[in-house]
Write a protein that binds this DNA or RNA. Structure first.
Lengths: 230, 230
DNA sequence: ACCCGAAATGAATATTGGTTCAGTACTGAA
DNA sequence: TTCAGTACTGAACCAATATTCATTTCGGGT
């Protein structure tokens, strides 16, 4: 038995080799979807185009995903999950004050997003489909939650004044997402200085939660975490 | 000559009465568009539906607007212009510090937006069409500009520390828009307390720009300005 | 070699909804 | 009352594109 096999309903078998091939096609399709969106936005993301980039037939897409919306939802969910992980990783670093964590998390997110311009714009702002939009909302909620937790920590540690962590978490997310999108929208006008934007936004968010308690204004450090950017 | 007339190309005339009727139909169509979007979002906003609500035939829409996108763009532009005017009006009040102005402007916007839930959500977040999206971007830019000016004032008056007014203006807009959308997205979960949300967001924005300089934290006042809400 | 079922293919189909336009109803002046 | 011009109507049209499915190719067991 040189090849591991699975038995299907009809009594037939399927070698792990073809399983792997199938899984690979699926991966290629997701990859292609991301590529197309990054390059030309959701507007250009027809099923046929994605198929051709992934080097499979149009119909094959439907062998892996029940619908176009589900394909793009999954793609977007992956991208967003990765960004959330990065943010949480930066925020989790030991031995830093809540202020520092928030600054670093914001700066890192903004910097990464500004690197991957096309995808970031599409993910944050470009209209697509209600299903896909839902993913966007969930991603925002996830980020807001992460920041709300950081704020709670700061309040508990008496580093920040009392405040509604939930609302301010959302406000932080809105602030930095807008700071990413706004420059991208006018990137023709002025070349953008990633470091300057992310530092400024990070400071903004720190002050917003620390308020008068923030005496020194530490520069946020951007943690470059490798892996696909968004 | 009991009726003022205009001469058309063919030498014919058009009474002011029919002009008025035509203008009225146009107004009704815009109104209907807003109504449909407020009630059911852009997703349900087909030309045929708008026509039926406005009580005209589908084709008549095209007698007043060259395309669906232009109809909705105009509708959205109107709504956004009004909100921007309100914000600027609140911000322009005499004898107040920059901090107070910013707080009031933010609180007023958020409160108004939370009143007109449906429209606010659609205007801020719901995907539609690239043309319409452009209007959204412009509206955001307009708001950002208004806040950037307030920040400049504050910096000039040495009320705020030096900062990049352009970036922070955008961040403020992002912060309060998100604070509007996020609660709307989960409004099933918890009933929303408009006053609490707007006060919290206003405080957030004030701290974000004033930072350590903000010793007392004055409550922002919500100016209720009458007129269609968004 | 041959066969069976799974997987891939891509041209054909279905759907959706914006836009058009031939016909009809009005309007106001002569 | 008639007529020319204009506005209105809404069913038919059409483009775009997501989805289907009859056919072909492939993999591996006999």
């Amino acid at each position: 038995m040189p090849e591991s096999v699975t038995h299907t309903a009809g009594g037939a078998v399927r070698s792990s080799r073809v399983e792997a091939r199938k899984a690979d096609a699926r991966r290629r399709i997701l990859e292609a979807a991301r590529e197309v969106v990054t390059e030309h936005g959701f507007a250009a993301a027809q099923v046929a185009v994605v198929a051709s980039v992934a080097d499979v037939a149009t119909g094959s897409i439907y062998r892996h995903f029940p619908s176009k919306a589900s394909l793009f939802s999954e793609m977007l969910r992956d991208v967003c999950r990765r960004e959330l992980e990065v943010v949480r990783a930066v925020a989790a670093e030991e031995g830093r004050t809540a202020t520092e964590r928030i600054g670093d998390a914001v700066a890192t997110f903004v910097d990464r997003a500004l690197r991957g311009e096309g995808l970031a714009y599409a993910v944050i702002a470009e209209p697509m489909d209600p299903d896909v939009d839902q993913v966007r909302l969930e991603a925002r909620a996830g980020l807001a939650q992460a920041f709300a937790e950081l704020i709670e920590n700061g309040v508990t540690a008496e580093e920040f004044p009392a405040q509604d962590a939930r609302i301010r978490g959302a406000a932080i997310v809105g602030a930095f997402l807008e700071a990413v999108v706004a420059p991208l929208a006018e990137r023709v006008t002025r070349p953008l200085d990633r470091a300057a934007v992310s530092a400024e936004v990070a400071r903004f968010c720190q002050q917003a939660v620390a308020g008068a308690a923030l005496t020194s204004t530490p520069d946020a450090r951007i943690r470059v975490i490798h892996g696909g950017q968004s």
